[in-house]
Structure formats: structure tokens, C-alpha cells
């Protein structure tokens, strides 16, 4: 309870400083929070913000799922098999160090300015960090529990879902959280560079017209949506999966 009050208070303080700064600056470069709120309501009412936000969230969701699926699978493989780890490790380091912008440009050049290229570019950026986190977890697997499953001839399916995978949940969640924040940032860049809709595309257009108020309005809407997903989807799920750690 105390902690959540601190959160709210910090946010209010930030808004207050913003308000004062905007009032002192008195310029279109730094619109006040009230102007941003007004603009936000207008953009929502016209229906254009929900549409572009929807497109962006759709891309975030698809690339997030793709990156997590591939990252978790490869991470488990590398964490549990030394030969695979040795084979793939140098590629992994390469993947971790390629700048996001390079992947995006290459994907657009090779696959055209398509939805596939956009989603591929985002996923490729994220996959290596998921692999690193999950590999760490797979290396720390408790083999004693797997021996129990083996002795009692527990099916492969039950062994995987009830004994093996839950040991990786903390690592997968860590990767997922970082993943979501990284992915939506990259999605905006991808949209800016090669898509004709989405929040990134809109921000690009507003930039052309120097419309700072709209840029901040879009940002606000997007941050609110992401925080909502975090608070009402990810955190409750994590709590549910951790209920045994009382």
C-alpha cells in the first residue's frame, strides 16, 4: 500500500514540475500537460489514435510471441547441451551486438517494405537477449527433480511441463519483461522507417510538422497501455506462478 502511494506521488511530482516548466518556457516546443491531455482526447475522438495504436500493439504482440518462442527454445537447447552451446555461442554474441537499425534496414532491403520484414526485424533484435536469459536458467536446472521424474517413469510431457519448465519461469519472466520494453521501442523505429501506419509512423509525421503536442499525446497513450499490460497481465500472472514460494 505504502509503495503504491510512493509511485503515485512520484508521478504527480513529475507532472507538477512539467507544468511549471511549461508555464515558464511558454513555448510551443514544451506544451503543458493540460494541452497534451486535450490533444490526446481529440486524437482518440477522431478514431485515428486507436487505429494506429492498435496496429502498433498488434506488431508488438506478434514479434514478442515470436521472439519469446524462438528465444526460449534455443536458450533451453544451449543451456542443456554443451556442443550446441559451443556451436551457437559466437552467433549469439554476433546477434547481441548488431545494432537494431542495421537489422531493420537489412530486413527492409531483403524482404521489401512489408509487414513480414517489420516483424522479423523486431524479433531478430530481441531473440538473442531472451536466449541469454533462458540459457542461464537451463544451466541451473535441478537434476535431482528430473531424477525423480525418471525413476517414477513420468511421461515426457509431464516431465517437461511440470518439472522442467517451471524451473525456467523466473528467467522467462525476466526476459519477457525486458523484452516488452525493448520491443515496443524497436517497433516504433520500424514503423517510422518503413510502414504507413502505427504509432511510429504517426510520430514521424508529427515530427515533420513540428507538432510536439501530438507527439506527447501519442507517447502518453502508448505508455498508459504498456503500463496497463504490465500491471493487469504480467504481474498477476507472475504472482500466480510464484504462489508456491510463500
Amino acid at each position: 500500500m505504502k509503495a503504491s502511494w510512493a509511485r503515485v506521488l512520484a508521478l504527480l511530482l513529475f507532472l507538477f514540475i512539467w507544468l511549471i516548466a511549461a508555464w515558464l518556457a511558454n513555448s510551443s516546443i514544451l506544451p503543458s500537460p493540460i494541452a497534451v491531455l486535450k490533444s490526446l482526447i481529440e486524437h482518440i475522438a477522431s478514431g485515428e489514435l486507436p487505429y494506429h495504436l492498435g496496429m502498433t500493439l498488434y506488431r508488438v504482440a506478434i514479434s514478442f510471441l515470436l521472439a519469446m518462442l524462438i528465444g526460449v527454445a534455443v536458450g533451453m537447447l544451449m543451456g542443456s547441451s554443451r556442443p550446441w552451446d559451443q556451436w551457437l555461442d559466437s552467433l549469439l554474441i554476433l546477434g547481441l551486438n548488431i545494432p537494431a537499425l542495421v537489422t531493420i534496414i537489412l530486413c527492409y532491403i531483403w524482404f521489401g517494405l512489408t509487414e513480414l520484414a517489420a516483424i522479423l526485424a523486431v524479433s531478430i533484435n530481441k531473440i538473442p537477449t531472451v536466449i541469454v536469459a533462458v540459457r542461464e536458467g537451463a544451466r541451473a536446472i535441478d537434476h535431482h527433480l528430473l531424477q525423480v521424474a525418471q525413476v517414477y517413469q513420468v511421461s515426457h510431457r509431464d516431465t517437461f511441463f511440470k518439472v522442467y519448465l517451471p524451473q525456467l519461469y523466473p528467467y522467462i519472466f525476466g526476459a519477457g519483461r525486458n523484452g516488452l520494453s525493448l520491443i515496443w521501442k524497436i517497433v516504433l523505429v520500424v514503423e517510422l522507417l518503413g510502414r504507413s501506419n502505427g504509432v511510429g509512423f504517426q510520430l514521424g509525421s508529427f515530427f515533420q510538422f513540428f507538432d510536439i503536442t501530438s507527439i506527447l499525446a501519442y507517447t502518453t497513450a502508448f505508455v498508459i497501455v504498456i503500463l496497463t499490460i504490465e500491471a493487469f497481465l504480467i504481474r498477476p500472472l507472475e504472482k500466480h506462478l510464484n504462489r508456491w514460494r510463500i
Binding site: H144, L145, Q147, V148, A149, V151, Y152, Q153, V154, S155, D158, K162, V163, P166, L241, W244, R245
Partner: peptide
């Protein structure tokens, strides 16, 4: 069937008592 009791209890921490036992019943 073969059963094994180890030095440590080796229960699955995220399964409750019944589900720990069900795990071997399901096999």
C-alpha cells in the same frame, strides 16, 4: 513399478502435496 526415496524428500516445490503424488499416479 520401482519406487525410490532419496536422501532429500525431492518434492516438486511448485506442486502441492496432492499434485506431487498425482505426478507419479499419472505415469
Amino acid at each position: 513399478n520401482l519406487a525410490f526415496m532419496f536422501q532429500e524428500p525431492r518434492l516438486i516445490p511448485w506442486l502441492n502435496v496432492e499434485d506431487n503424488i498425482r505426478l507419479v499416479i499419472r505415469a
